[in-house]
Design a protein around this nucleic acid. Structure first.
Lengths: 98, 98
DNA sequence: ACCAATGTTCGATTAAATTAGAACATAAGA
DNA sequence: TCTTATGTTCTAATTTAATCGAACATTGGT
């Protein structure tokens, strides 16, 4: 379900983050910390939101852990920083500027 | 044909670079400097290569200038660095690691 | 047990990207 | 002027992605 750090690919990350909805998602996670899927309140259907979480998860950008009836999402910051130094920070900085 | 610096979007850049063929293209431009389309010798049909150049150009990542019968491609490094500091470098670094 | 809350998965639909072949445009050279 | 070189544009086929509704699973509370 969650890819290992080594199997995270650059193309996968760039693709996952090229979607404005997913970009907004990780921006929220970065600024407000870990949140459940519902707390992130996307303006799309539940199934669509679930799809976006899956894309981010399978790209290795977020991790999800069950907590009661909900799932808590958080950035895999350490893994990303060690595998692709500076990339996440540059994207987050750019997403604030734009 | 070439977008202004201000109209370059983060999503556009991330999407354009999420394709392995295009990523390889800009990596070659970064390491070997400006090159014609032909010199970059992609393993695809001419029309397909032209499509990839167009995507990179319209995303604001490269600029193309006519030079005789050919087009010289180069990175819009200054524009990218000023608009999204550190992003291009992080991607290029990541593309070397991976 | 029963019910509500929270997401996931399945199936279908619609939209967008990738690819390539064929025809076209432009510049340089013989 | 004719030909070659270098890409672009057009059109079409295949693939991939985004979206939603409905049904399903799991947990926690009543």
């Amino acid at each position: 379900m969650h890819p290992s750090k080594e199997s995270i690919t650059l193309s996968g990350i760039l693709y996952a983050l090229s979607d404005p909805t997913r970009l907004a998602l990780i921006q929220s996670l970065a600024s407000k910390g870990a949140q459940s899927c519902g707390a992130l309140s996307l303006p799309v259907a539940k199934s669509t939101a679930s799809h976006h979480f899956r894309v981010l998860r399978e790209a290795g950008i977020i991790q999800m852990q069950a907590e009661g009836t909900q799932f808590i999402n958080s950035l895999r910051r350490d893994d990303l920083d060690s595998r692709f130094p500076g990339l996440l920070d540059a994207v987050l900085l750019a997403s604030e500027v734009a």
